[in-house]
Design a protein around this nucleic acid. Structure first.
Length: 564
RNA sequence: CGGGGUGUGGCUCAGCCCGGUUAGAGCGCUUGGUUCGGGACCAAGAGGUCGGUGGUUCGAAUCCACUCACCCCGACCA
């Protein structure tokens, strides 16, 4: 492709709206343009990369027996009502105004619809069906460029099995395929166990990459590979020590003291001597949650511990239930259920609120004074804490979810009555798995992990072109004819070449554009080298430059290709 | 949905507080010329209903109200 005839609108300056590196570079390198919040057009260069990624995905899905579908984005609402997911998705689902259609946010229903009545016997199973298709979700707040959009490309596959053991096999095939896909894409990733949320089903794993632009916070142990979302990662920190002597409880006047920090400062005590109170409504009943010091309640853990719905109490409810405002609440005299974080187990000589504004109570012995207390793991773990599995230090950081694999079970097959007959002739719901990959996220995450101050650094497999040929001074007849000849030769040898044949640009512009676009190998045709029948080759990633003989170009290129 | 911010030529921004000729700069673009290995130079040009609507005023990019769009933080999120 000749650059002079290409639509690759590069930007010299950083666009105002972009913050994270991948977003900035995708705009600057002319890969994408925004149409509206969370809605992006892929320009020719960006779309070439998308096609490389989807090709890798396709190959690995086909390798595990996947069969590619192309499904409609426009779906009858009725199908989604049968599985109760119109309600489950709520405002996240786009609804068509002038007909009872929705825009599909995923495709469990539609795949199951096709399975119904056609996968009739255990002999028809297993099946793995997939598609690479645009999904629509009315995200409340699109962000980070292409990473969280209202419209995005997703590879989603669905497995149909006749037994749970066979589902395990399908799941494990996907697990292996996903690892291959992300490895081939050149991503540094890790895998965490996760809760499957609104998808239904039980076991699931997320494929993640570490990134400040991530929306999940995970705990990761480099030593043993343990990784978990902080919402569920077990806390492994020691309990506060129990003093040998328990003091009596006593009331302290603490005017205008609301936070733990203020309390510690006021009483000259350590944070660990305090128990912070939070009141939640659990199934319409108040529950007092005690945390050590400034530890925050992890509401996911709380909900898991109690089961059912949990929400923090409103300020007016607090007053009604405890007689005090937030900042002065405590376990002594609290007449409803009381639970505490494990870190407080059997603690004594603690300070907490008095359920009376401007007063706290000291000398609390949870064992003696709160006999009905129950303990749960309720706090989020922090960087530096010990791994529950191997004892090494855990790291806590943000991460982006690239892919997610679920063992769905029979939720959809039951709702849509997709049954098969087993060996005994009994009708049973098909056992399903569901597996997704965010295609744009793969691209954005790759860039997040592979760029420098000049621009993107593509790998051989994802690069939109194999080679970037630069004719420096295209008003020099010698360079024009030499670079054109090289261009034709490389194309004939099967390379996909981007040829910067632009007449009116100085060398600096061409070099900078080449570094911005990030094609792994640059071939530079300049006057001085050409006079000696030589060319320069530059490797984008390392910046290394090589002067080579012109007649050895093809041989050298194939050597460089194996180096990158 | 809550909080904060921004909207002026294709891009980055100044001007706004304190209203007053013809709304500016750099980059990009067009034409001609010079230059030609790290974002060149000279000259001449094109390009803007100052996000929108309404109001205040003799007069609004500038003040007021409403509204829309986009960004960031939070809530939410298969």
């Amino acid at each position: 492709m000749k650059l002079s005839k290409s639509y690759i609108p590069t930007l010299k300056e950083v666009p105002n709206d972009a913050i994270i590196p991948s977003h900035i570079l995708m705009l600057r390198a002319g890969l994408v343009r925004m149409l509206s919040a969370g809605i992006y057009s892929f320009l020719p260069l960006g779309y070439k990369v998308i096609k490389k990624i989807t090709q890798i995905i396709r190959e690995e899905m086909d390798a595990i027996g996947g069969q590619e579908f192309h499904l409609p984005a426009l779906n009858p609402k009725e199908i989604w009502e049968q599985t109760n997911r119109v309600e489950a998705f709520g405002d996240t689902m786009f609804h068509i105004k002038n007909r009872d259609y929705v825009l599909a946010p995923t495709h469990e229903e539609i795949m199951t619809y096709h399975a119904k009545g056609t996968l009739k016997s255990y002999k028809d199973l297993p099946q793995t069906w997939y598609q690479i298709q645009t999904k629509f979700r009315n995200e409340a707040r699109p962000r980070s460029g292409v990473i969280r959009g209202r419209q995005f490309l997703m590879k989603d596959s669905y497995s149909f099995d006749s037994s749970w053991e066979n589902l395990d096999a399908s799941y494990s095939l996907h697990d292996k395929a996903y690892r291959k896909i992300f490895e081939r894409c050149g991503l540094k990733f890790f895998v965490v166990g996760a809760s499957s949320g609104a998808m239904g089903g039980n076991k699931s794993e997320e494929f993640m990459v570490k990134s400040d632009a991530g929306e999940d916070t995970v705990a990761y142990c480099e030593k043993c590979g343990y990784a978990a979302n902080v919402e569920v990662a077990q806390s492994n920190i020691e309990s506060v020590a129990r003093n040998s002597e328990s003091k009596e409880i006593y009331e302290i006047s603490t005017p205008n003291i609301h936070s733990i920090d203020e309390l510690c400062e006021f009483l000259k005590i350590h944070e660990q001597e305090t128990a912070k109170s939070r009141v939640y409504m659990h199934n319409e009943k108040p529950v007092l949650v005690l945390m050590s010091g400034n530890d925050e309640v992890n509401e996911t853990k709380l909900a898991n511990a109690l089961g059912g719905q949990v929400r923090p109490c409103h300020p007016d409810e607090l007053k009604e239930i405890t007689g005090a405002d937030a900042g002065s609440i405590g376990p002594i005299g609290f007449s409803h259920r009381i639970i505490a974080d494990l870190r407080l187990k059997d603690g004594n000589n603690l300070y907490s609120g008095a359920n009376k504004n401007d007063f706290h109570i000291g000398g609390i012995d949870l064992k003696r004074d709160v006999p009905k207390i129950e303990y749960f793991d309720l706090r989020s773990i922090c960087s530096g804490e010990k791994c529950t599995r191997c004892g090494n230090h855990l790291e806590v950081f943000k991460a982006i979810e690239l892919g997610h694999i679920f063992k769905l079970g029979t939720k959809y097959s039951e709702a849509l009555e997709a049954n098969f007959l087993d060996e005994k002739g009994e009708a049973k719901p098909i056992i399903m798995g569901s597996y997704g990959i965010g295609v744009e996220r793969v691209m954005a995450c790759y860039i997040e992990q592979n760029f420098d101050e000049k621009g993107i650094i593509w790998s051989k497999l994802l690069s939109p072109f194999d080679l970037h040929l630069i004719g420096l001074n295209m008003k020099n007849e010698m360079i024009v004819s030499a670079s054109n000849e090289i261009y034709e030769k490389l194309k004939a040898a099967g390379y996909d070449v981007l040829f910067d044949d632009r007449k009116d640009f100085s060398a600096g512009v061409k070099f900078n554009d080449a570094d911005l676009l990030g094609i792994p190998i640059q071939i530079i045709v300049g006057e001085k080298n050409l006079k000696e029948n030589k060319l320069e080759v530059k490797l984008r990633r390392t910046g290394e430059k090589f002067i080579i003989d012109r007649n050895q170009l093809e041989q050298k290129i194939s050597e460089f290709q194996s180096m990158i």
